[in-house]
């Protein structure tokens, strides 16, 4: 185990909570929260930012799937659901949320170990993928801005594309700005000019 996880647990049964606490501790992780229902779990997650969430599904007040949805939205972490039930409905709802594992009771320690390892890895992969996607989106956005700004320059300064691009690069390096920021400035100036004219 490379790095201890900060684990938030939820089960309405104290005995199960206790077993989970003990088992995670024994596995070398840190149990930061042990909740008796979904709401407690969500609240704990918002404040404590755990790196792993293990939750029962059927619980009072707020069930595990609803809690998972809230956590995924507000305090993302790998979530493993543990339930005695696996009817179609539950599975459908669980897959709609961002759960990383679904274990059917009864489970034993090896089940947990496997599921935790897989969930963490999957979550990591998910996070990486999400980050990559965001980077790509931003890059694309910036390219669009640059192209538009280039267009503005070409039109008003009567430059060709090559010259416009080079002028924007020079301006970026002169003002120590990103090319995209320069593009934004140009576009803002253009908008202001349109406004006054």
């Amino acid at each position: 185990m490379t790095e201890p996880l900060r684990v938030a647990l939820a089960d309405d049964e104290p005995l199960i909570r206790r077993w989970l606490e003990e088992t995670f501790r024994d596995m070398g992780h840190l149990v930061v929260a042990s909740a008796a229902n979904g709401r407690e779990l969500v609240e704990a997650c918002l404040t404590l930012r755990p790196t792993l969430v293990v939750s029962d599904i059927r619980m009072p007040v707020l069930d595990g799937i609803e809690a998972a949805l809230a956590i995924a939205r507000d305090a993302p972490a790998p979530i493993i659901l543990v339930s005695a039930y696996h009817d179609e409905d539950l599975i459908a709802r669980a897959t709609a949320s961002q759960v990383m594992g679904y274990l059917i009771k009864p489970i034993e320690r090896p089940d947990l170990e496997t599921a935790v390892a897989i969930a963490c890895r999957r979550f990591q992969q998910l996070c990486d993928a999400q980050r990559a996607a965001a980077d790509l989106a931003r890059t694309l956005e910036e390219r669009k801005l640059i192209e538009r700004a280039k267009g503005v320059l070409m039109k008003h300064a009567h430059l060709d594309e090559e010259q416009a691009h080079r002028r924007m690069q020079r301006m970026a390096s002169d003002t120590n700005r990103k090319l995209a920021d320069v593009a934004r400035l140009i576009l803002a100036a253009q908008e202001a000019r349109d406004l006054f004219s």
Binding site: L15, W19, T23, A84, K105
Partner: peptide
Amino acid sequence: AHESRNALQRSQAVLEMLAR
């Protein structure tokens, strides 16, 4: 059988804790 899963889970939990 369904309901027994919770009981089995408790029993399993106790067994593991006891073993420790």
